[in-house]
Design a protein around this nucleic acid. Structure first.
Length: 271
DNA sequence: GTGCTTGTTGGCCA
DNA sequence: GTGGCCAACAAGCA
């Protein structure tokens, strides 16, 4: 589930960790989420430390610890963070538990597409410092969006929106919501959407802001005027047109759109 | 049992 | 070499 706003919501679940010493670290060393990480070293490094700051960028989270060191978290498809009372009894999918005197921070991920990383030292890891501009940062400009579309002119628009190197934090539902609000067909080749760059840029930022406000603060219910509540099952009705929504796989992902609103131009006939 | 799933990566092929 | 597609990863749910 986790996209931009969900990730921000989960970061906040771990806020009680701030300022409290970690008294116990529990993890399953063989869990796929630790691929490439020395788990024994991670346990030793976290013990006794206090989380001093936390950050979100796109779908990436980063927690800074007092004595130096950075815990990176990606929630993948099914990951989540929560805060539980102690003593904490981890379930089979609770892969990382940081216990304190006041409660336990838990990373839970049944499908294990998520990822935990550890970077020692005072400077943040390289993957964090080279990140692309966030959708609501000044560096995310219409020109940058145009470049992304021009770089992949034959790819479906939806596939380009899902690329994290241009649009950090956009996931499947956000991409559908953006294209629906822009009245652009998800399968439109990106190179044919250049005229729409100003409106696309505006709506990308609008959806990011709306998602953070509604979901990112307290996981509220998105209003019925969005595509969001209507896109999950076959038989949904477009809240703009009142006509049935269509669902199909585009760019390898389940995609929902409103056919009378989001039209594909008829291909030019060769002769 | 079957067939889905809100993410990412690497291999394959044009 | 480049770009795009798709299977694989793993588990839960309908």
């Amino acid at each position: 589930m986790p996209e931009l706003a969900e990730v921000e919501f989960y970061r906040k679940q771990w806020l009680p960790l701030g300022g409290q010493a970690v008294t116990g670290v529990r993890l399953h060393p063989r869990a796929r989420v630790f691929r490439g990480v020395q788990t024994a070293g991670l346990q030793a490094a976290l013990l006794g430390q206090k989380a001093s700051a936390s950050f979100v960028h796109g779908k990436q989270m980063l927690f800074h610890f007092s004595a130096g060191g950075w815990l990176g978290l990606h929630l993948g498809m099914s990951g989540s963070l929560d805060w539980r009372p102690v003593p904490c009894h981890p379930g089979p999918h609770d892969h990382l538990v940081l216990e304190t005197g006041q409660g336990a921070a838990v990373f839970h991920d049944p499908r294990m597409f998520g990822r935990v990383t550890w970077h020692p030292g005072t400077e943040p890891p390289a993957w964090w410092t080279v990140r692309p501009p966030g959708l609501l940062e000044p560096g995310f400009t219409p020109a940058l969006l145009r470049q992304a579309l021009q770089r992949h002119p034959r790819a479906p628009l939806k596939a380009v929106l899902l690329r994290q190197e241009y649009f950090p934090g956009i996931g499947n539902w956000m991409a559908d919501e953006i294209l629906w609000r822009c009245a652009l067909h998800p399968a439109l080749p990106a190179g044919q959407a250049l005229e729409a760059v100003p409106v696309l840029w505006k709506i990308v930022r609008q959806v990011a802001r709306d998602a953070l406000r509604v979901i990112g603060t307290d996981w509220g219910q998105p209003p019925a005027s969005w595509l969001f509540p209507h896109r999950w099952k076959d038989g949904g009705i477009c809240p703009k047109t009142g006509a049935p929504l269509l669902r199909a796989t585009i760019a390898g992902r389940t995609t929902c759109w409103s056919p009378s609103l989001q039209k594909l131009p008829r291909p030019a006939r060769s002769r």
